[in-house]
Amino acid sequence: MARESRARLFKGRGDSDERTLVRVRTHGKAVFVPILLALLVASLAAALIAVLPPEWKPIATWVTIGAAALLVLWFSVRPFIEWFTTSYTITTRRVITKHGVLNRYGHELPLSRIDSVGSERGIIDRMFGCGTLVFSTASERPVVLHDVPQVKDIEGLLADLIYRAHRDDQD
């Protein structure tokens, strides 16, 4: 039912020829450090439990496990869930970003409103083949998309689409 409603909305606006070109999740490097932190916390908790005096064992063991679990949840599981729920979609007419765990947030930016597109890539980003896309518009502050995989290819695709969108607007 929802797809049919959306399809009718697109047809009503004359956008029936809109196609999805790219749909990506942020690069996996975004969860690399949280995974390392989870391993480090688990190792430290195990080492601490191993050296606890025997008279402290029952209570101190559970306190250590609880503290380690909270740290892993906050610094590892939460970033993983945020990574998993963040996506970027590029269609022939717009750029769509979605993120959020409990509350879903989305932003749609028509290609005709984008003035320029650029990318930023540090040394780590270049090693992983990802980077940050930056869109400039006349009326808004720049839109920044972090950890975009294959950022150079997507930047080139967007530059072509934006050029066509502006050319079509002038015709």
Rank of each mutant, 00 (worst) to 15 (best):
L52Y: 02
K98H: 13
P53D: 08
V95R: 00
V51A: 11
Y88M: 06
A68R: 00
S76I: 05
L71F: 11
P54S: 08
Y88V: 03
T97F: 10
K98R: 12
T92V: 09
A68H: 02
R94P: 00
S87P: 11
I59G: 10
V101T: 07
T97C: 04
I96P: 01
R94A: 03
F84D: 14
T61C: 00
T91Y: 02
V72L: 05
E82T: 15
K98Y: 11
N103T: 15
R94T: 03
R104W: 13
F84Y: 15
S87E: 15
T86K: 01
L52M: 06
Y105S: 14
E55L: 09
P58E: 02
A68K: 00
P79E: 06
A67Y: 06
V63N: 01
A67F: 04
F80N: 00
T85A: 12
T85V: 09
T92N: 02
V77K: 09
R104G: 12
H99Y: 14
W62F: 13
S76Q: 01
L73P: 04
T86P: 03
E82F: 13
R93C: 09
V51L: 07
P79A: 01
F80S: 04
W56N: 04
V51W: 11
A60D: 08
T91M: 03
T92Q: 07
R94H: 06
H99T: 12
H99W: 14
R78G: 07
L70S: 09
A50G: 08
R93T: 10
I65V: 09
S76N: 06
P54F: 04
T91D: 08
E55K: 10
A50M: 12
G100V: 00
I81A: 09
Y105N: 15
R78H: 15
G100I: 07
R104F: 12
L70V: 11
L71W: 07
A50Y: 12
T97D: 06
A67Q: 01
P79T: 02
L52S: 04
L52P: 01
L73K: 11
L73T: 14
E55A: 14
N103W: 15
Y105P: 07
T64V: 10
S87L: 14
Y88Q: 09
P53Q: 11
G66N: 07
T64N: 04
E55D: 14
T86C: 07
T86N: 05
P54V: 02
F84K: 13
L73M: 15
L71I: 10
P79I: 02
R93Q: 13
I90Y: 03
F75K: 12
L52G: 03
W56L: 09
T85H: 08
W74D: 14
I81Y: 11
L70G: 10
A68W: 00
T92M: 03
K57F: 12
L73G: 13
V51G: 08
T85I: 01
E82N: 15
G100M: 04
P53A: 05
I59Y: 13
P58T: 04
T91K: 05
L102P: 05
P53I: 03
R104Y: 13
L102M: 11
F75N: 07
A69C: 03
T89I: 08
E55Q: 13
R94C: 05
A67N: 08
L70Q: 08
L102F: 15
L71Y: 06
V77W: 09
P53F: 01
V101W: 10
T92S: 08
W74T: 15
W83T: 02
R93P: 02
I96W: 07
